[in-house]
Amino acid sequence: MIKSNLLICLIRTLQSIGRRTIDRLWRLGAGARLFLLTIIYSGESFRRFHLTIREIYSTGVMSLLIVVVSAFFVGMVLALQGYYTLQKYGSSEAIGVLVALSLLRELGPVVTALLFAGRAGTAITAEIGLMKATEQLSAMEMMAVSPIARVVAPRFWAGVISMPLLALLFSMVGILGGYIVAVPLIGVDEGAFWSQMQANVDIREDIINGVIKSIVFGVACTMIALFEGFDAPPTAEGVSRATTRTVVTSSLAVLGLDFVLTSFMLAV
């Protein structure tokens, strides 16, 4: 009796694993299909570029404040923590390098992407989910206008364009925050701060690689947000769950992709 109960339990567990796997795979495929369609329809949406500009406003410009403020604090904290450790080894001048490299290579792209997922990604998911729930997307289709060309593609390109710009601003403002803590507050020599930074930051390996990372994150975050919105069940509960999923999935995707990209970049 107990044995057969255990067997049933095991079968149930396996079934649920199988169902989840199939569900995930299905969603992955559907997401890839949406991505391909978006690329195919991009030409159509580029003819009316003001749509993309409008979306750059609502994703990029609207995320500007949160990105700049966070960057400032992140930079200041980096400088404080860095100084605390570096001064033990008597090399507090290296604080500029520390701040600049950690921002350009990692924190700039990654933290910007996480903030972007929370600020712009959720907005995209909720907007598209509601457009679907209120039949706006259906209406568009019935008017012989492709929702992918009119709604999805402009948002996608807006995200891909905004993300590296935001990440660059993040790094810039972060370094400024680090400078303010290190030079006027702690009293690190200004010349040493900048010259050490300049000697050790490589344009291609640090700055350009950071930009490449943030472009990849832009594609991932925006595509996840768009797909979740498109895939959301047309109910209040469905849209709210899709919004949550956007944040969770984007954050995991960003951190995972960051590892993969970093290992590639270090290997080359």
Binding site: L130, M131, T134, E135, Q136, A139, M142, M143, A144
Partner: peptide
């Protein structure tokens, strides 16, 4: 579809 016009149940206006 260009020959068709459709009125949706709740209007489906672009908000």
């Amino acid at each position: 579809r260009r020959k068709m016009g459709m009125l949706f149940q709740h209007g489906a206006l672009f908000t």
